[in-house]
Design a binder for these strands. Structure first.
Lengths: 329, 329
DNA sequence: AATTAAACTGTAAGCGCTTTCAAAATTTAA
DNA sequence: TTAAATTTTGAAAGCGCTTACAGTTTAATT
């Protein structure tokens, strides 16, 4: 069933059909009603390809995340999807696993599909090849980077000030009397980079000793935190507090600490990041940095929509996190 | 830059351009090479609308989940996306919040966008209105239901035998000497329905007493489990084991049990469902039913692809779960 | 060298829609 | 009642691609 069939049945031209479908005002009430009845009757849905060919928009945006199974990305993606859905857009979701080539392939595919915009969530720090691809693509499609940054035409960033978030943790722990603080870094993203910097700054600012051993590179996930503590103990390193780049890493650390019969927070304080449900599941409940995931998701959508509608948009938006204090500190 | 521009530049016809883009064999090596060079040079990407208009396929499928922030749905969606990506398809993700009308709206939108197929993850049990919409839509688009079932033309199901999964838990607990077992049900999906049935069957099979209080309806999430235990205690109900419909619910229950200084598993045994990362984060680590999420996701993609390629597909596929035993029992 | 077959390329139609421009119908003004 | 202004409608072009069919070139066969 297409526009021609409908036109024939209604005894009008295809132009008229098109007009009522698109709510153009210059159609008489009478014909509008007649056409609408026929549309209803056939439960007609216009062909998006044909329409897209003319309009050049599919009302679709692409979202690239690293791995949707990670609650952080899931929440960002969820928020974006819900917000865009309100605006009549749908989102194509891509899981890149953080792989640059995969990202580029996805971007190319999305370009072919003529998405109206692109949101990249979580970028590797200073990925030259990717950045080139992004600036290239941005010539045709507006791009928003969530927790990533790139100076280029038609690309916009919205980031959480993760650096400040971690610095806040250091301040807080310092006030509680902690001197030997360890930071567990678990990724090499733009965001992870910021966190490390925030840690260093926080330590220095409070005149705490920052050694090359203060920052520990660990694997993602439970095991990362678990093995980190193991390592700290075998190396006989002194520490009274641990800050982890993600809640799950913190929980892994807690697990090992408990096995070693350390009391939390009496012997060792632990702080996580993301303020996810895991922080609440943890025993003891985990103090964690709330990095405002929903705010960021909503912001990303807003930015893109503003661009669509020709409004002026700052190329960088920064959101301030805050510390949620629970039982682990 | 379109096919005409390219044709002019290459000194060939648009048909030839199209042929090399689509790897048709009947193009001479010489012209193929020449055209490819020009394609490269302009970094040309064909217009998917125009192509879709002819081919009637966008190489896109729609996935409806309840809430991607739930790890279960995230994992299903992730698996589906990755598998389809290998086949050259992209997926449009929709979060319905379990709302029937929203589901129907999404389905209509996806139909307009001419998705090649649809996967519905997690259906409410016996939702008449939705089922009607599904059978209607399936006339045009093949639909796969994950953990849902509907007898209709062109709709296929892949489900985990959740009923058996819970029955297994009962068997296991019975062998461990438990008699008073409580089941915490937290949803009204097809899957939740199956779980309750499995519980009842398991209890009866083992000649255990099944009272109306054996099955407790609780809210989703941590609090559901927490309040459930609270309720059991205030009602002075006798129980030595709890089976929860989801890991997070089990963790909530554990939390309250600990507050009441109950030893787990010595005083009370607890079992979760989904075998998610939460089961590993829990302290003690949670025994949980592995409902084979990846297997199901891969299966769903396979089914849809088989349909696309005209192969014969059974209308119902059942996957058997298994019990992962950890420290909580 | 002439004929036939095979390989390659081009023309043109059509996918289903939006939109411009002109024509027809209606309303308003004179 | 007629002319002018306004509202409503329709014809046709074009969006960028695929593909059937016809035409042209090249290779193979006699």
């Amino acid at each position: 069933m297409n526009i021609y069939d409908l036109a024939r049945e209604a005894g009008v031209s295809i132009a008229t059909i098109s007009r009522v479908i698109n709510n153009h005002p210059q159609v008489s009430e009478k014909t509008r009603k007649k056409v609408n009845e026929i549309l209803e009757k056939h439960n007609y849905t216009p062909n998006a390809f044909a329409r897209g060919l003319v309009i050049k928009s599919m009302k679709t945006i692409g979202v690239l995340t690293i791995d949707i199974r990670d609650l952080y990305y899931a929440t960002v993606a969820y928020t974006i999807e819900q917000e865009f859905s309100k605006l009549g857009y749908s989102v194509i979701l891509c899981n890149t696993g953080g792989n640059t080539q995969k990202k580029i392939n996805y971007m190319k595919m999305l370009a072919e599909k003529n998405v109206d915009g692109l949101i990249l969530v979580g970028s590797v720090f200073k990925d030259k090849k990717l950045n080139k691809a992004i600036s290239q693509l941005a010539k045709n499609i507006p791009i928003v980077m969530v927790n990533g940054f790139l100076e280029a035409e038609n690309v916009y960033s919205i980031i959480c000030d993760d650096s400040y978030g971690i610095a806040m943790c250091v301040d807080y722990l310092y006030k509680k009397g902690h001197k030997d603080i360890i930071y567990l870094q678990d990724a090499k993203t733009y965001s992870a980079q910021a966190k490390s910097e925030g840690f260093s700054h926080g330590m220095i600012k409070n005149n705490l000793v920052l050694t090359p051993f203060s920052i520990l590179n660990v694997k993602k996930g439970l095991k990362g935190g678990y093995h980190a503590v193991e390592h700290l103990i075998t190396c006989k390193q002194n520490f009274s507090a641990i800050i982890a780049g993600e809640d799950i890493t913190a929980v892994g650390a807690i697990k090992k600490l408990k096995e070693l019969h350390k009391q939390i927070p009496e012997n060792i304080a632990v702080i996580g990041f993301n303020n996810s449900i895991i922080a609440q599941c943890s025993d003891p409940e985990l103090t964690s940095v709330d990095n405002k995931i929903e705010t960021i998701g909503i912001g990303a959508v807003r930015i893109l929509n503003d661009v669509f509608e020709g409004r002026n948009v700052p190329s960088k938006t920064v959101i301030t996190p805050n510390l949620v204090i629970r039982k682990s500190t």
